[in-house]
Design a protein around this nucleic acid. Structure first.
Lengths: 337, 337
DNA sequence: TTGAAAGCGCTAACAC
DNA sequence: GTGTTAGCGCTTTCAA
């Protein structure tokens, strides 16, 4: 019996304490091989008593599988990454898989360092995520020796990619407003240079028809204020609903309307996009908004990367996941039917 | 020469290609042992050409050191964790250390699963972090086989702990307001049940003196509104400055003052706490506020956990890191001298 | 100056 | 039913 008190208990210690060989101990603990039930349970008891936990490194070295994946993101703010991460983690934790989080800003050198570090640590796969779906991360992830899943960031040709269904979310918002009896629905959104802006605006136009009016601007509260000024200072009929490209714009819109004495939701309904709770819930009245279900997106990304790591075939291409309307008080209308 | 095309290149391959033994190859690459410079550089060239990267698992198994640490947090929102994480990552990345992020909500079972998984993976240390400094995480981290550093969460007796210096931050805010010539400074803050609320309020009282007036409430914009209503609807002299317990309260205060026609910063100065940019920058005018320097706190936590892992002695106890005043426009006054 | 061999903790063939 | 042994990729004595 070797003298190593301060260190972890190894399978060797379990075997010795149970009076069997380490092979038998291993088989007993992994429910493989054959032996009497008595031996198996004795070994298990001893292991439990000693607090034995197998060394994942040794296992990984043997199996070429580390039960570890890497999550790469350039979303320092975490607004998109955190819910995504929560989903990934949730999908993987009961498989015993842990997640390396690497925030790479937009620095290619830093990105490379992190990717190399993950590869050195033999991650089973990588999930690449970002803050917009029409930009690639500043690092080339093709032809890596491990599978890659792209979540909420642009994927290369033939990449396995997951995004939320912007168009469907947009349609959902418009339909909700229509269902409330709104007739003059305007869309106030971010910069045209964002693919999701065009996607949402396109779906909005298709749903609203000839009357469609889109105001492009920035992703800020201030732009929401300004857009309201433009709309209300113009001659002619005013909108009775505003569908906003994100929650910050929506908050600006709501504040501006209130300051003008426009009654919400009586006279005008406002829908946001993102369901960023810090913004949506602090708005007066709280925002009805579209949730991109990023946590579910993360779960799916976790499942996919694991499937890939296990050698299962996964069709490349872009998978669009549904958005959900979250009803608060900025539109009127009760909970959804 | 074995046939393994699809797999990573091992030191064996490098040795073979360079015509040396793996022992020599290893020494060459690690700048240990002795050999001719020619041999060493030849091996290095071959390794570079082959794109050799050592298997971190094998190394870890050998050295009992995984170059991996775990970051545990119950701050799902990420408001505190993300900057912290960024700092940790920054401090560790050039040491080749990667970070497992584990979001545990407030679920003891989940926490245990994650901690066990990290331990199985032989992390070199753990950083425990949270969303308030007067609550412990729902898991016992004492007597683990690896070092633990507590950052922005309550540590057990004798833990190594890092928090921001709330009292100093509070003093800084008050001094700034005094320096601007403000005479009637009120403090509007969160619930008394938070240690940091008492800490900040105490320092505020000490700095302001007999006139000190503290309004306790919740951490919300709404409470900011309500506090202004109380203060301005009361008889007597009005405050000329409000120091708020966080940025959300400050935003509520600023909005309420504007709605009352009080001119900011001409008549009243407002200081927030947290420097949560999404809130501070969207406020009109943008908030002057106290930054807790969580990123630096993260860096320090990373350094400490590494020192501990390396066996260096680190004195237990609470380390308070300084806060910084960030000047925007809600107080008047130029950039700091 | 270089190389053979042992071993980190574990699992899986293969003997017995 | 149980044990012996080889080996995952690497570093490190120790011998040549």
């Amino acid at each position: 019996m070797s003298i190593r008190t301060s260190t972890r208990v190894r399978i060797y210690d379990v075997a010795a304490a149970a009076g069997v060989s380490i092979a038998t101990a291993s088989k007993a603990l992994n429910d493989t091989g054959r032996m009497t039930d008595e031996t198996r349970s004795r070994v298990k008891d001893v292991a439990a008593r000693l607090g034995f936990r197998p060394n994942a490194m040794a296992r990984a070295l043997l199996h070429q599988r580390s039960f570890t994946i890497g999550l790469l993101t350039n979303d320092t703010y975490g607004r998109f990454t955190l819910p995504l991460m929560a989903g990934v983690s949730e999908a993987l934790v009961d498989q015993g898989v842990s997640v390396f989080l690497c925030a790479i800003e937009d620095d290619p050198a830093l990105a490379k360092i992190h990717v190399d570090a993950m590869l050195d640590k033999q991650v089973d796969g990588i999930i690449a995520s970002g803050k917009r779906i029409d930009r690639q991360l500043p690092v080339d992830l093709e032809n890596l020796s491990v599978p890659v899943v792209y979540a909420f960031t642009q994927a290369p040709e033939n990449g396995v990619s997951l995004v939320s269904d912007d168009a469907a979310g947009s349609r959902e918002a418009v339909e909700w407003l229509k269902g409330l009896g709104r007739q003059r629905i305007v869309h106030v959104t971010g910069p045209r240079s964002f693919a999701s802006v065009e996607e949402r605006a396109g779906a909005y136009r298709a749903a609203v028809g000839a009357d469609a009016q889109v105001l492009f601007g920035t992703w800020s509260e201030q732009w929401g204020h300004e857009a309201v000024a433009r709309l209300w200072d113009a001659a002619g009929e005013k909108p009775d609903a505003i569908f906003c490209g994100n929650d910050q714009i929506a908050r600006g819109v709501v504040d501006a309307l209130r300051e003008r004495g426009v009654s919400l939701p009586a006279d005008v309904s406002v829908v946001g996009f993102d369901n960023w709770e810090i913004v949506a819930e602090a708005t007066r009245p709280p925002l009805t908004t579209i949730d991109m279900n990023l946590k579910e997106l993360g779960r799916e990304a976790g499942r996919l990367v694991l499937a890939l790591a296990a050698g299962e075939a996964v069709a490349p291409g872009i998978r669009k996941l549904p958005c959900t309307l979250v009803v608060r008080q900025s539109c009127g209308g009760g909970p959804r039917s």
